[in-house]
Design a protein around this nucleic acid. Structure first.
Lengths: 150, 150
DNA sequence: ATGCAAGTAGCACGCGCAAGCAACTATTTC
DNA sequence: GAAATAGTTGCTTGCGCGTGCTACTTGCAT
């Protein structure tokens, strides 16, 4: 059992920790967003990404990127949101294969409503997680990302 | 835009980073384990957990815990692995509601085969991820978890 | 008996894969 | 140059699969 084996073990342990933190946060966000605004985490992610690009459009592929989803799943995700009137598809003139998506007024409104709930839930979970020593290192890394700028 | 707002933004950014790292690692492990030993990441997780408890049994609920899965999903996961002959269900004498699971010889063998592939893939991904500055803080936290003991 | 805990199915839903269709690009041909 | 052809890209659809929710069965506890 040498140093190399230890490194393997450390990586495996780190990965398990990451999975634990991820599923903890995701489950809680899912609950918070689901019961208040009927949005899944991934649906919120899309609204969030679109609202950050306010005025701009996003292609399906970009959405697939930020959602870490396959093209087909992205299609259906956009379908769901479009059926609820939260966004619209916009055909692009210069490349008629491409499809842009854009928040509707209702979409912006729902996002404004969801965002504080999302942020509050996130803060709640992270402060809880910091209490758990086995998760603490990852938590510090997450919150310390802007530390150099303080 | 005060300090509190910045904190919210830092947390949201950290969460997005965590999601990115998670889905990156998961996708790569899925690919590596899938094409070599036909195991999903979650199936490997179960074999790993069981082999760490060698000699011991694990209840369905404990498995559900380590896999971050619902009871019903755990049932079917164990079904799949049992159908492939990788583990067996063992009824427990002192509480006949409880069901223990145990690796078979074939299960142990497949795990021995899968583990180095898993560890190698993990190392590969982590070293790649360290190259990407936006992921680096989380990566350091993962690998540095045992740092105090060095 | 009444209540609670452990594990198992029925159901609907969201996902990835592979195939398909429309639109763009490059190359050839006249 | 204009038209035809082959190959690629962007998005969508059919299909099978794994998941969570809810309801259910069985066994323990009070």
């Amino acid at each position: 059992m040498g140093i190399a084996d230890d490194a393997v073990e450390v990586r495996a342990r780190g990965w398990r920790t990451l999975v634990a933190v991820h599923s903890l946060i995701e489950a809680e966000l899912e609950r918070a967003l689901g019961e208040s605004v009927r949005l899944s985490v991934i649906e919120y992610t899309v609204l969030d990404a679109l609202s950050r690009q306010d005025g701009w459009h996003m292609r399906m592929q970009q959405l697939a990127g930020v959602a870490a989803l396959s093209p087909s799943a992205t299609t259906r995700l956009v379908n769901r949101l479009e059926d609820r009137g939260l966004l619209t598809r916009v055909l692009c003139a210069d490349d008629r294969r491409g499809i842009y998506t854009e928040l509707t007024a209702a979409g912006r409104e729902l996002y404004q409503q969801a965002r504080p709930l999302h942020d509050a839930a996130l803060e709640r979970i992270l402060s809880q997680a910091e209490e758990r020593p086995e998760l603490a290192p990852v938590m510090r890394a997450l919150q310390g990302e802007l530390a150099p700028a303080e």
